[in-house]
Simulated scan of single mutants.
Amino acid sequence: MSVFISFEGVDGSGKSTQIRLLLQYLDEQSVPYVFTREPGGTPIAEQIRRVLLDPANRGMSVITEALLFAAARAEHVSRTIRPALEEGKVVICDRFVDSSLVYQGVAGGLPVEFLTQINEMATGALRPHRTIVLDLAPEVALARRTGEEADRIERQSREYHQLVREGYLDLARAEPRRVKVVDASRSVEEVQKDVRRLVEEVLPRRFRGAGTRP
């Protein structure tokens, strides 16, 4: 049985750190996995990523943004995610369709029905078995990104990022079995404990508590 797990949250919520620690844990448990990210995950999708996140493209319309994300996602799913799932691996993905529903939908103003339709076409209606949302106030999240140059989306207003946060919380209320919210304002260790618990709940039984490699 393969498992697809996505991570979501406002920019600066700590996804990179928590995913890195989770991957170390999966290595210790001898769990076969593939880690990937959005936008990206294939050479073509990585090229689209550069266009999407380049601050020089600040005039990009939200509908162009949505269509580019969907195009990158179609490539990503067909060439990286589905093949890994077919091999029985655990796929850990930094962002997936929920990002489009929240960023281009809730915060960007596009109809969720439109975004759902184009992304179902792009992914073949693929959905994660579990989505972990790292929840953090935008002002705290953005303050954590000291020393890093902000990309085009990170440079959006605080109001925009607050809408993103609220969008994720609404998703969790709408789909409580799939979407789980983790309070990311706590210590790295406390957050990781919750992340591991939520991941273990959906892992195949043979991998739960498998123990470390000799």
Rank of each mutant, 00 (worst) to 15 (best):
P83L: 05
R82H: 06
E65Q: 07
A84Q: 00
I153Q: 08
E189N: 13
M121T: 03
V51N: 13
R37I: 01
L134Q: 08
F4S: 12
V62N: 15
A71P: 04
E166R: 15
A150P: 15
R213Y: 15
E148L: 11
L23G: 04
R155D: 02
R196S: 14
L163C: 14
P214A: 02
R49P: 00
Q162H: 08
G88W: 14
P32S: 02
R178W: 07
L67I: 04
R208K: 15
E154C: 14
V77A: 04
R165F: 13
L134N: 07
G109C: 01
I19P: 00
V181H: 03
R196I: 12
S13F: 10
V195Y: 10
F96K: 13
R95K: 07
R82K: 10
S6K: 13
Y33M: 00
H161W: 02
L67G: 02
P176G: 04
V202E: 08
D183P: 15
E166V: 15
R79Q: 14
V199I: 07
V106Q: 03
G9S: 06
A84C: 09
V90P: 14
D98M: 03
G9H: 07
L203D: 11
K15R: 11
S61V: 00
Y103R: 03
P55E: 01
R155N: 06
A66I: 00
R79S: 10
E175D: 11
G105C: 02
H129E: 06
R152K: 01
P32H: 03
R127C: 02
V102K: 14
D94S: 12
A84K: 11
G105S: 07
A174T: 05
Q104R: 01
T116S: 12
E139L: 05
D11S: 12
V202L: 13
F207H: 14
L163Y: 13
D98K: 01
S13K: 10
G59V: 05
E166C: 11
D194F: 14
K193T: 05
K180E: 03
K180I: 13
A70S: 08
E28M: 05
T42H: 07
P111E: 02
L136E: 03
G40C: 04
D151W: 02
G124R: 04
P204D: 09
G59Q: 05
I92M: 14
P32M: 04
L52N: 03
L198D: 12
P176L: 05
F207Q: 12
V199G: 10
D151H: 04
I5K: 13
R205M: 15
A143F: 09
Y25W: 06
G88I: 10
V188D: 11
L126C: 13
R197M: 15
N119H: 03
A74V: 00
L142D: 10
S13Y: 01
D183V: 14
R79N: 15
P204M: 06
R73K: 07
Y160K: 12
A184P: 15
F96C: 07
M121N: 05
E200Y: 12
L198T: 10
L21F: 10
Y160N: 11
H129G: 09
R50M: 05
G108R: 09
L53K: 01
E38P: 00
R58S: 11
S157Y: 09
A66P: 10
M1E: 09
R58W: 01
S157F: 10
G41T: 00
